[in-house]
């Protein structure tokens, strides 16, 4: 990497050479820094390569059929049944329950913090909301299993609600992503220029009317992106579902029943003694690939939403 650049060659050669000197040390440093940036590319390539390669092995197995993998509803490796739908179904159930909790709570908190709260209240409440995001997920899993599930069982009866169920897991995942949605939405709401608010107040709108009919529509792209990011986080969440949602891949739409999610299944299978040649081992990569694709699509869509529907002012 020899370095010399145009635009610096104007100096008179005889008196003083003002051209940028090639400095080997500086170039080496630039190379090293470039490489440490490149690690992130390696990580992505590594993920894609590892997931792809081991998934290929999985699908090459005579017991597996990619059509059945994507369309059948029984996942029982013992009898060679590999249909991923029960796992995807459980993941979606948990995520949707989580979103039903997190969207009203997160958006409510975001509107309050950005449109209503006086600076002093905001500075106390916001760190507390963010504190919830800092609690390790395994602690939430403990909370779901030892507090929320017994609570649900005492409300709906222990005959209806199993010890492991999607509802408890979903509710607590909702609590987990609420701060994420609140923070991201609040950023979007605060970015709306205050001129719009002033104009709305000037027309006689109340604070609530301004927030909901002026500020929220203006920030909608950011807010929706926040929802999608939250959804992606819920899909990838592992510890809460591993502890609270159960260890049986059921195809069920009943939130009171146990059902294993994709992440929960990966955690359970790899937690045991895993032989590298078994189909169990390659199956976690195939599930991982599906999970990776789902989150990738969600993240891509969220960026698309921001880009496409952003309202630009000033």
């Amino acid at each position: 990497m020899a370095a010399s650049e145009p635009g610096m060659t104007g100096g008179s050669r005889a008196a003083l050479d003002l051209r940028r000197k090639p400095r080997i040390g500086e170039s080496i440093i630039q190379l090293l820094l470039f490489l440490s940036g490149f690690i992130s590319i390696f990580t992505t390539l590594g993920i894609v390569w590892v997931l792809g390669q081991e998934s290929l092995k999985f699908f090459a197995d005579p017991k597996v059929n990619i059509g059945e993998f994507l369309t059948t509803t029984v996942w029982q490796p013992q009898i060679d049944a590999f249909g991923i739908l029960p796992l995807i179904n459980a993941t979606l159930m948990v995520s949707i329950i989580a979103m039903l909790v997190a969207i009203p709570l997160g958006l409510g908190a975001a509107i309050y913090l950005s449109e209503y709260a006086a600076p002093r209240i905001r500075n106390t409440l916001k760190p507390i909301v963010e504190l919830l995001a800092g609690v390790p997920t395994v602690v939430y899993g403990y909370f779901a299993l030892t507090f929320v599930t017994p609570l649900l069982r005492s409300i709906f009866g222990s005959d209806t609600v199993s010890i492991y169920n999607d509802l408890a897991a979903g509710l607590v995942v909702g609590v987990l992503i609420t701060p994420l949605i609140a923070t991201l939405s609040e950023d979007a709401l605060s970015a709306v220029p205050s001129g719009l608010r002033q104009a709305s107040f000037g027309l006689g709108a109340t604070r609530w009317e301004t927030a909901v009919q002026v500020v929220l529509p203006a920030a909608l792209s950011g807010v929706i992106a926040a929802f999608i990011v939250g959804m992606s986080r819920a899909v990838g969440e592992t510890m809460i579902v591993a502890l609270a949602a159960g260890a049986s891949p059921n195809f069920t739409f009943n939130p009171f029943e146990p059902a294993e999610t994709m992440t929960g299944h990966i955690a359970r299978i790899s937690g045991g003694d895993l032989s590298y040649n078994s189909i169990d081992y390659t199956s976690i990569f195939a599930i991982g690939l599906v999970l990776f694709m789902i989150t990738l699509v969600l993240n891509y869509v969220s960026r698309l939403v921001v880009k496409r529907f952003r309202e630009v002012y000033e």
Binding site: T43, I47, V50, L51, I266, G288, L291
Partner: peptide
């Protein structure tokens, strides 16, 4: 993009 990848995928990697 990497910041949005679920942590369990890193475990698989």
């Amino acid at each position: 993009n990497l910041a949005g990848v679920p942590s369990i995928i890193y475990g698989i990697l």
